[in-house]
Design a protein around this nucleic acid. Structure first.
Length: 498
RNA sequence: GGCCCCAUCGUCUAGGGGUUAGGACGCUGGAUUCUCAUUCCAGUAACAGGGGUUCGAUUCCCCUUGGGGCUACCA
């Protein structure tokens, strides 16, 4: 390679890098902090995150809190901690800052007013002095006449003088978008392709409310532009207001981002997923002992699917294979059954120590002493095979940590002559055994069967009830291994006098 | 009501002009020589309807129907 060529090569590399930086993909998750992270929100966050990871882009968290009426204290902190707990990290956000801070809209209000003024000046927005009462009445009338419920544009053409007079009198006002009455808006959504809307059907959206705060429509366009967002990945509920956003970009003379409208997450009855029909708060799933791995994997498959038949993906694997092209168009029912299966799958297949760590709070909550680590791991190892979320593990394993209670049916089996004989024999034989290996127990079972001529359920049920409290449950050797010799003997002796 | 979007098993989905329409969850049955659970195997089940286009449509187009979303000084 001659130096000249080498130089050219280096230069080319440099310019590519530069180009890359300019064109760097930037996406954002922009929830409004209404108290908790909604699973639909989590899905939106996930897809944004995955798209950024896949394309070496940046993922931004921005808080859309321009509705003061819906302010919930602590909601922001909660949102951030949930995102953290689930493992979705962002490159810029309210708690970590970034080059475009602040990332909380209520701290950016001055900005929005400035841009609204620009719109006013360029004739793309107007003052509206209509009262909420008039608007309500208008809608009522239109509803009766079965017309669209749009604002009638009363203030659209007020004279300068009229406006000035009202402003001087401190009349309350809002600022509305002056949306064109003619033509149509055509845009291309990455998921839905071409979408067309007649302009005269689009309302003169309020941009600045009477309290001076912007609405979503204004704030989100300004921030997305200022924060150099390249792809807007959001729920389908925003599809019909996209023409307004597009008009705003055009009015400001800004480059349009790419739009990606995700199919909605649905209730079993196919309506938009809501808390009326089950839990939608991510934190409550976490509290119930659903693992982040399972939640993320399950939710990734709602509205997206790889080309093959694979179902199980780690976050890292999703980051590699995710693509917008494979996002589906139709809404997806949030199927709790499948989530349960998937969570169970992760519970059984993730590292035992990891699962045991995750299970700890549940045992501590139940007041069990799990300081015997060896025993605890055995307990979790057994329990995790029979549950679909960690909150269920206590019911499966509590018999290893507290005294047994028996139903009348079980008491009958215990006091059965045959059972008593087994207990007597076992107390004697077990004491003789050095360690209680699977083999030892197998032999003892065989021996018992021969001496007392019992087998099958007659042999197993009395023992399992004595040691585990139920006739259905894990293999006897496993139960005995967890309990240990002393406890086994103790539990058997306990039942002798019954 | 108006506008927009969507339409393959009950659910999540793959597929795509000619396929035995594939996988997963669920459900059912079987195996793992006590049960339960796990695991494995097998089975059940779908192209909403009607018109086109075509030699041939589940696949492309149109209509109908159905579902959903939006229609706030909420996001």
């Amino acid at each position: 390679m001659t130096p000249l060529i080498q130089n050219k090569f280096v230069e080319k590399k440099k310019s590519e890098k530069l180009l890359n930086m300019c064109n760097k993909i930037r996406v954002r998750f922009a929830p409004s902090p209404t108290g908790f992270l909604h699973v639909g929100g989590l899905r939106t966050a996930l897809f944004n995150y995955l798209f950024a990871q896949k394309n070496n882009g940046e993922f931004i968290l921005r808080i859309e809190d321009t509705d003061r009426k819906r302010y919930v204290s602590g909601a922001l902190e909660n949102l951030i901690s949930t995102l953290k707990a689930i493992g979705l990290t962002y490159d810029e956000g309210p708690d970590i800052g970034g080059p475009f801070a602040p990332y909380v809209q209520s701290e950016r209000t001055g900005l929005y007013k400035k841009y609204a003024q620009k719109l006013l000046d360029s004739g793309n927005a107007y003052y509206c002095f209509c009262s909420e009462e008039r608007l309500e009445k208008l809608r009522e009338e239109r509803r009766e006449r079965k017309l669209s419920l749009m604002y009638d544009g009363k203030c659209r053409n007020l004279s300068k003088k009229e406006i000035e007079e009202k402003l001087e009198k401190n009349a309350p006002y809002v600022i509305r978008l002056k949306f064109p009455k003619e033509g149509k808006t055509v845009f291309y959504d990455k998921v839905r392709e071409k979408v067309e809307v007649e302009n005269n059907l689009v309302e003169d959206q309020i941009l600045i409310k009477a309290d001076g705060f912007p609405t979503y429509h204004l704030a989100n366009v300004i921030d997305d532009h200022l924060m150099k967002i390249t792809h807007i990945i959001r729920g389908e509920e925003w599809l019909s207001s996209t023409p307004k956003h597009i008009f705003l970009y055009q009015a400001f003379g800004w480059e349009l981002p790419k739009f990606v409208h995700l199919p909605l997450l649905l209730n079993p009855d196919k309506s938009k997923l809501s808390k009326r029909q089950g839990d939608v708060a991510v934190e409550s799933y976490l509290e119930k002992g659903y693992l982040p791995e399972a939640l993320l994997n399950f939710i990734a498959l709602l509205g997206w699917h790889a080309a093959d038949d694979r179902e199980i993906y780690s976050l890292q694997e999703l980051e590699k294979v995710f693509s917008i092209k494979r996002i589906t168009k139709s809404g997806a029912v949030f199927d709790f059954e499948k989530l349960n299966w998937m969570n169970g799958h992760y519970l059984r297949n993730l590292g035992l120590k990891y699962v045991a760590e995750k299970a700890k709070p549940f045992f501590e909550n139940a007041g069990f002493d799990i300081s015997n680590k060896k025993k605890y791991l055995k307990v979790v190892s057994m329990g995790r095979k029979r549950i679909s979320n960690l909150s269920e593990i206590i019911a499966q394993t509590e018999m290893f940590y507290k005294d047994l209670k028996f139903s009348n049916e079980e008491k009958e089996i215990i006091s059965d002559e045959n059972s008593q004989k087994i207990y007597l024999l076992w107390i004697e034989e077990i004491s003789k055994l050095q360690d209680l290996s699977n083999e030892d127990i197998g032999n003892l079972l065989k021996k018992t069967s021969e001496i007392l001529s019992v087998r099958g359920k007659e042999l197993y049920f009395p023992i399992r009830i004595a040691l585990y409290g139920k006739c259905h449950g894990p293999d006897l050797p496993m139960i005995i291994d967890i309990l240990g010799k002393d406890e086994v003997v103790k539990r058997l002796k306990n039942l002798l006098s019954v």
